[in-house]
Design a protein around this nucleic acid. Structure first.
Lengths: 159, 159
DNA sequence: TCTGAAATATATTAGAA
DNA sequence: TTCTAATATATTTCAGA
């Protein structure tokens, strides 16, 4: 099944990607539609699951999360992947967990308050069943960090 | 300067991290305060910059973004970092760009529609001044992907 | 800071084109 | 799908504790 989105839907989505709490009348002005029309479109976009969620993004620095790191993990034996992923999901300091091609089977993006808590978490990861090696890259500075998708009019969406 | 957040602020922030468009009366019920009190607290949290932004998160799959990859880039000579970062910032397929410790000077998180567009972007990166090497890890599957911070009551925030 | 009541703004529903 | 008008909700303002 394939959704068809027009220019207006794209504009609405692009505005919501940047302004998640935007009011319907603000969006109505932008797309030159009435408020009920915008409401109806938003409802459909949400219903179809095109919008996964709305989130407030907090300022990491102001909450004293000083360490961001990428950890490459080599988990030996794919039969151990599920238990690894389960461990990961229990730890909120893990912002991302992906299985990847190339060296290492998984990459984690981790955020902690300081080097001490990072080191502690790293040790924990290394203690998990199947974890044979890790390699960490600590972030020194971040220039861009977003989840905004570059969607366009010509984009055909599916499923 | 140091902010002092109480249990109620934390609850509000945690709810907004998961439900960015939550209404004030819903939050008021959760924290057992009146709506004006919740409004006032939200206003302050935003004003202090603790909340950086509110965003709608779109479903990558439904928009046919099939490729997510991490690219390690080695940029030779730190005097070339600024031009590299500038290039990066012009490309919306780059979701993240960080300078890091260890091998490679930067890591990019990139999202494209398909392998073709990824390959094209990778070639472009390799053509930028100062880029001497890249190493890519393509994401096979993602188990967790969030920007939610694990904030708690005891957290002392600063600045 | 908080609350409740009033005023205002925003969102939803109904009905027609 | 869209609109306008009517209704319902939500938010803000403000007086008072």
């Amino acid at each position: 099944m394939s959704h068809q989105l027009d220019e207006t839907d794209i504009k609405i989505l692009n505005h919501l990607q940047k302004h998640g709490r935007a009011q319907r009348n603000t969006i109505a002005d932008i797309v030159h539609l009435s408020v009920p029309s915008v409401s109806e479109r938003m409802r459909k976009l949400e219903e179809k699951g095109l919008i996964s969620s709305y989130n407030a993004v907090l300022d990491s620095k102001k909450f004293n999360f000083d360490i961001t790191a990428f950890i490459f993990v080599e988990v030996d034996g794919s039969e151990r992947y599920p238990s690894f992923v389960e461990h990961v999901s229990e730890h909120p300091e893990v912002l991302e967990c992906h299985s990847i091609t190339g060296d290492g089977s998984h990459i984690l993006k981790v955020r902690t308050k300081n080097t001490e808590s990072f080191e502690k978490f790293l040790s924990l990861v290394q203690s998990w069943d199947g974890v044979s090696r890790t390699r960490s890259n600590i972030v020194l500075s971040s220039f861009k960090e977003t989840r905004e998708l570059p969607i366009e009019r010509t984009v055909e969406t599916k499923k």
